[in-house]
């Protein structure tokens, strides 16, 4: 049990790590849908020539492991003048990664808004901006909610990968403690339980939200 006592001693560092994990997760979860919406919007409504490069961006990001992307950014970045500290690189990488997935989710949502709802708005006299703000974006948000919650969980789990490029988040903090005290198993267990709780809570909140929004959905 002494291992667990040592764990108790290391608690402040672990709490710091948890804090950074949650910060990276929330920041990534906020930034990547915004960037993703930009990409989805440009591909749907922008000039034709932007579609190809954006398609390539989405497919390359979705077709390669996050770890490889992070290695490329973190170890390759300095060679092209992008010398970032691990945390900044982590946040940038997480955002660029999440945005590719979100752009597909949001593009699907935009396409799924029934054309008739926009036509009805035109007939009532709403202008373009009003239709986007009042009809398109809210309806799209409802449609993409389940997929987005899934993606938030994915992003949370990907933050653990950032430990490999030495971002001092939860996984790094706990495994660091583990190797210092030869308490590998205990530390891995603590990690598993931390992440499991976070993902389970996120999933539950997501499902609850979905139930509450059910009345906005026409079968």
């Amino acid at each position: 049990m002494t291992d667990f006592d040592a764990l108790w001693e290391a608690l402040p560092e672990i709490v710091d790590g948890l804090g950074l994990t949650i910060f990276m997760w929330l920041a990534g979860s906020l930034l990547s849908p915004v960037l993703g919406l930009g990409v989805a919007w440009a591909r749907r409504f922008g000039p034709g020539w932007v579609d190809r490069p954006l398609w390539a961006y989405v497919e390359v990001i979705r077709g390669t492991p996050f770890l490889v992307q992070m290695f490329l950014l973190y170890y390759g970045g300095p060679f092209i003048g992008l010398d970032l500290d691990p945390t900044t690189a982590g946040l940038l990488g997480l955002t660029v990664y999440g945005a590719a997935y979100f752009s597909e989710i949001l593009r699907g949502g935009l396409i799924a808004v029934p054309k008739g709802h926009v036509e009805a708005a035109l007939c009532v006299g709403l202008d373009r901006g009003q239709i986007i703000r009042r009809i398109l974006l809210p309806e799209m948000t409802l449609l993409v909610l389940p997929a987005s919650v899934n993606m938030f969980v994915v992003l949370l789990k990907e933050t653990a990968v950032l430990s490999i490029i030495t971002v001092p988040e939860l996984t790094m903090a706990v495994t660091g403690f583990g190797s210092a005290n030869f308490a590998f198993t205990q530390s891995a267990l603590v990690l598993a339980i931390c992440y499991w709780s976070l993902t389970e809570i996120t999933g539950r909140v997501g499902r609850g939200l979905e139930r509450r929004l059910d009345r906005f959905r026409i079968a």
């Binding site: 969980v153 789990k157 990907e158 653990a160 990968v161 430990s163 490999i164 996984t171 495994t175 590998f184 198993t185 891995a188 267990l189 990690l191 598993a192 992440y195 499991w196 993902t199 389970e200 999933g203």
Partner: peptide
């Protein structure tokens, strides 16, 4: 197994 990051699972 869906809730724990694969990296953590591998370490475990």
């Amino acid at each position: 197994f869906r809730g724990v990051p694969l990296l953590v699972l591998l370490l475990l």
